[in-house]
Design a protein around this nucleic acid. Sequence first.
RNA 1: CGGGGCGUAGCGCAGCCUGGUAGCGCAUCUGCUUUGGGAGCAGAGGGCCGGAGGUUCAAAUCCUCUCGCCCCGACCA
Length: 586
Amino acid sequence: MRMSELFCHTYREEPSEAQTESHKYLLKAGFIQPLAAGIYTYLPFAVRVMAKIQAIIREEMNAIGGQEILMPVMQPAELWMETGRYQNIGSELVRFKDRAGRQMVLAMTHEEVVTDLARRMIMGHRGLPFMTYQIQVKIRDEPRSRGGLIRVREFHMKDAYSFHRDAADLDRYYPHVYQAYTNIFQRCGIEPLVVEADPGMMGGSGSHEFMCVIDSGEDTLVKCNRCGYAANIENAFIRVPEFEPDPEELPIEEVATPGRESIADVAAFLSVPESKTLKAVFYNADGSLVFVAIRGDFEVNETKLMNILGVKSLELAEPELLSRHGMVAGYASPLDLPADVRIVADRSLEWGNNFVAGANKPDYHLRNINIPRDLQVARFEDILTAREGAGCPRCDRGILKLVRGIELGHIFKLGTKYTDAMDVTYLDEDRRRQRVVMGCYGIGVGRLMSAVVEVNHDENGICWPRSVAPFEAHLVSLSGGNREIDDSADALYGELRAAGIETLYDDRDESPGVKFNDADLIGCPLRITVSTRSLRQGGYEMKGRRSKSVEIASREQGAGVIQAYLDSLEILTDNVGSVLKHDTLG
RNA sequence: CGGGGCGUAGCGCAGCCUGGUAGCGCAUCUGCUUUGGGAGCAGAGGGCCGGAGGUUCAAAUCCUCUCGCCCCGACCA
């Protein structure tokens, strides 16, 4: 491609709205153009990168028996009512009426349609298992888009769905997807961290997220320093700590704590560690008040709490709701709770005694609250947030570390959530009607492109891995009107194209500085310069974008030596369908 | 949805406090010179100052409302 004809231009100034590196460079180098909040046009460079990512995804999906389909974005709301998600999902699901007044939605994911498809297509056990996938636009009216392509309202997702005769077959298939996902991310130049995750609105029995570990990531992850345990903090557990309770339970005692409302203030005022306090956190869960009791030094994990309560919405209770139930914010007591207030006690309360808690009147706390002496708890739940330095729940001596990451892919064992709701069955060998079991597997394509940039850049621009670079070679001609150099560069461009090397040819009438800076910014893995200097040295200069190593290729050697140099730059992890290739679908 | 910030030329910004002819740099176009790290000179084009009301002789500037964008939080496969 000649840059003089390319529909794209780079920017000299840093775009002001960009906060993350990938957002900055994708805008500055002319890969994307914003249209509205979280909605972007993909320009030629981005389209080329995404096409390469998609090609990798297709290879890996096909290698585990996937068959590509394409499902509609515009869907009748009926299907979503059938699974209940029409009612359960908030306004991020775009709803509208068509001209005939029928209720419609724009697909934020495709479980409903694919499950409907399955019930039309599955006849008997001979038709199982199978896996279909698509690369299709998803529409999610996110409450807050951010980070360039990291969180957007319209994006491309590879979503795959597998259908099985039973859970055991899904269990057998799931590791193949796991492996294919690992291959995909590695081939794009990212070593993923796989974490145990919360299935969220998707439902199902278990899921794994494939994360790109980077400080700018929006998810917090825990990782054991000794064993392989890793989890999204939403779903992370900790080892039960060693704990030495006080030798005896002391009588309850009321103490004045004027103006001390926070755990930190109360603990300091009474000279006790925060772990000797009982923290009361109030939530408005689908409109009703929930009293959460947790040891003062821990934080509530709201994802876990929502799962336990089985509610759709959870937010901190507003003061009015508290007072309506006779509770006093800052001094609330778990004792003598009104009957209509549900209490959820975290298991951290089992790891202590003689707690300090609110007295349920302003400026007073109670010392020496003991469970179950003073407070009967039907059941302790795990609703605490894992923290740095906590013990690993899987091994004896491991310590958890917190890292940040970007969620690139998510795989779910959905089970029968959708096939139950939509009644998808098959006849087995004994002519018994059986429920179909599902898995589903997603990857955000644009987000993956962004993550590749987050991980592969320097202060001058992007350093694309060869596997997904918009072009392999960036040919820079510094002719300055010199006919010999123009001819020489033109000839080389022709040779490279003939040799099948994807080349971006900077034939513009620009100064060397402009061309070199653009080359660094755009980030093709190999830069080739033709200039009076290079010709004097015997040919063309080859410079690796990442390695910055420079070599001269003679004019006679032509494209062959460039191909060889390119091949030497990066060892591709060419592991299509590796490891688990056999014994899969199809 | 709460909190904060910002909307002035394609991009980055100044001007606003203290009302009085809308500016700067880059980019674009023309000409000449220049060509190994964002060139020089000369010239040119480009604006409903986000929008709507209001105050005023006069509004980019002051007031009210509104829309949009960004950030933090809530939310989120």
